[in-house]
Design a protein around this nucleic acid. Structure first.
Lengths: 213, 213
DNA sequence: CCATAACTACCGGGAAACCGGTAGTTTCGC
DNA sequence: GCGAAACTACCGGTTTCCCGGTAGTTATGG
């Protein structure tokens, strides 16, 4: 639409908070070398606007209603493997950060970070870099030491968080109650806790699971 | 500092996310009748800046690191009972909303709300109104039907969320384990659950407790 | 083809939690 | 001063959970 946007970095901003979108837009539009070409508040909208605008860089919040930011990233990267995505997240230590990076996100920025970092990261990512902040690097390394939960274990703790008993979890997953207890013990061991309540809160803190609506 | 700020509504913005602060500032400064005179990222800073600037309206996020938004509101209203405060919060259904309103907040706005509502609410609050959105009103009414947790019950579920056993909770609160179990049963009953894990997740969803650190 | 990881399943014992009662004390408002 | 609510405490019984083992099956990958 604009006329003299020859070499500007074209950005898609995805966040369900209008105020955050405005903050990002303002910050970016103040830069001479970048501009926000579209904003989305949901994953579905993001996919549509991405196809329509083909932005150079996409800023993606992870906590979206409905389709999550992680799922959105996976879809975008599947159809467009060269999509450059910067994750914008609330809390550090969120397990989803690592899953997002594994899904192809190029970098992540905390919402508590001063916004100068955001534009710097956008420039780096646009140049093809994958800037990795030191705390993420150390936590990625730490993941190798204490391995993440397996798929099945995530399913179990997800149901635990819903208040299900082991017997009910067994029924839901069509496995024996004994097996559920094995998964439970492995979860406790990995998270460094001794009961299910602490396991659920620990998993929530680390972003392994989320409180659904 | 500025010259022609004769009749403008002077606003203090409190939020730990720089991008949100920028979004709010941008939105407000675009209005002809209001301006942001100061921004704070913590409760302590907010109290200091409030005393310094005496804003007409304070926009307050509830989820602040360290001193919570709720505590900050209580302090502000205790020293300045005429302080007009608009709560800016993430999720609706957050118990803290009602505690904030009881503590003297004049209104609340969701971060997912379109930002036009924010400036409208600010104007109303500045005129002395306490605009109450319908869903808050219904939920306030609902609180009378199913009473909120008592102080002691909140203390118990807080410790539950930390993974403490009943015996440990009893020791922490210097009461008998039997009494803890009584509180636990009352909590389950009020929250409509049957075990502690579900109680903790339900309390987290409703904003009765929060995941610290 | 062998190792590793993930998932499955079982057993027995002990600890913790949950349930349904009853009941005394304090505190607060009417 | 009386009722209501909150907090405290106890009992007996049942269920669920937690722990420490052992072990078979199925990919996955070097």
């Amino acid at each position: 639409m604009a006329s003299e946007s020859s070499s500007r970095i074209r950005i898609l901003c995805v966040d369900d908070h209008p105020l955050v979108r405005e903050g990002v837009t303002r910050k970016i539009d103040l830069q001479p070398d970048m501009e926000v070409v579209a904003s989305a508040s949901t994953g579905e909208e993001a996919i549509r606007l991405f196809a329509q605008h083909r932005p150079d860089v996409t800023i993606m919040d992870l906590n979206l209603p409905g389709m999550s930011g992680l799922e959105t990233i996976e879809v975008l990267r599947r159809t467009r493997p060269d999509a450059r995505i910067v994750v914008l997240t609330m809390h550090k230590g969120d397990e989803d950060i690592y899953r997002a990076l594994e899904a192809g996100a190029a970098a992540y920025v905390l919402k508590t970070t001063v916004s100068d970092d955001l534009v710097r990261v956008i420039r780096d990512v646009h140049l093809g870099a994958r800037p990795m902040s030191s705390d993420v690097a150390t936590q990625l390394a730490a993941r190798k030491v204490s391995p993440p939960l397996t798929r099945r274990e995530r399913a179990v703790i997800e149901l635990m968080a819903r208040g299900k008993r082991n017997k009910e979890i067994a029924a839901d997953l069509a496995i024996s109650e004994d097996t559920v207890e094995v998964h439970a013990r492995n979860i406790f061991s990995k998270l460094g806790v001794r009961d299910r309540t602490a396991a659920v809160t620990a998993a929530l803190k680390r972003g392994i699971i989320h409180l659904g609506g």
